[in-house]
C-alpha cells in the first residue's frame, strides 16, 4: 500500500479531488432522497386534502354567502387572525411596516397566526 504519511504531491492532489467528489456524491445522494421524501409527503398531503374536501363538500356549499361583500375603497380585503388578538395584530403589522420602511397601506397582510410550541 502507498505511504499515506509521507504523501507525494501527486497523491495529495488525487486525494483532494477524490475527497471533494465524495462529499458531492454523498450530499447529492442525500438531496435525491430528500426530494423523493418531499414528493411522497406532498402527494400524501394532496390525497388527504382531496378526501377531506369530498366529505365536507356539501357543508362548504351551504356556507358560501349568496352575495359578495363589496370591499371598501383602498382595502385589501379581510385579514384572518388565528389565536391572535386585534391589538397584537396591529402592533405586528406596524413593526413589519417599520422594518421594511414601507407605508402600511402599501402592504397586504393575509393572515396572522400565533405559532405555538408543545411543552411537556
Amino acid at each position: 500500500m502507498e505511504d499515506l504519511v509521507n504523501i507525494t504531491i501527486g497523491t495529495a492532489g488525487a486525494t483532494a479531488l477524490l475527497g471533494y467528489a465524495v462529499v458531492f456524491f454523498a450530499l447529492v445522494l442525500l438531496m435525491s432522497v430528500l426530494y423523493i421524501l418531499g414528493a411522497v409527503m406532498k402527494a400524501k398531503a394532496k390525497k388527504q386534502a382531496v378526501s377531506v374536501g369530498d366529505i365536507e363538500a356539501p357543508r362548504v356549499m351551504e356556507a358560501v354567502p349568496l352575495e359578495i361583500k363589496a370591499m371598501a375603497p383602498g382595502s385589501a380585503g379581510e385579514l384572518k387572525l388565528y389565536d391572535t388578538d386585534p391589538r397584537t395584530a396591529a402592533m405586528l403589522m406596524a413593526i413589519v411596516a417599520d422594518e421594511m420602511h414601507a407605508p402600511l397601506n402599501e402592504l397586504r397582510f393575509l393572515s396572522i397566526r400565533e405559532i405555538k410550541e408543545d411543552k411537556d
Partner: peptide, 21 residues
C-alpha cells in the same frame, strides 16, 4: 428540507478543506 438543493452549496463550500490539505 424545504430546499434540498442547499446541500449542493454545503458541498461546494468544502473546497477550502481540500485545497488547504
Amino acid at each position: 428540507i424545504a430546499n434540498p438543493k442547499s446541500l449542493l452549496l454545503g458541498a461546494a463550500a468544502q473546497l477550502g478543506v481540500f485545497v488547504a490539505f
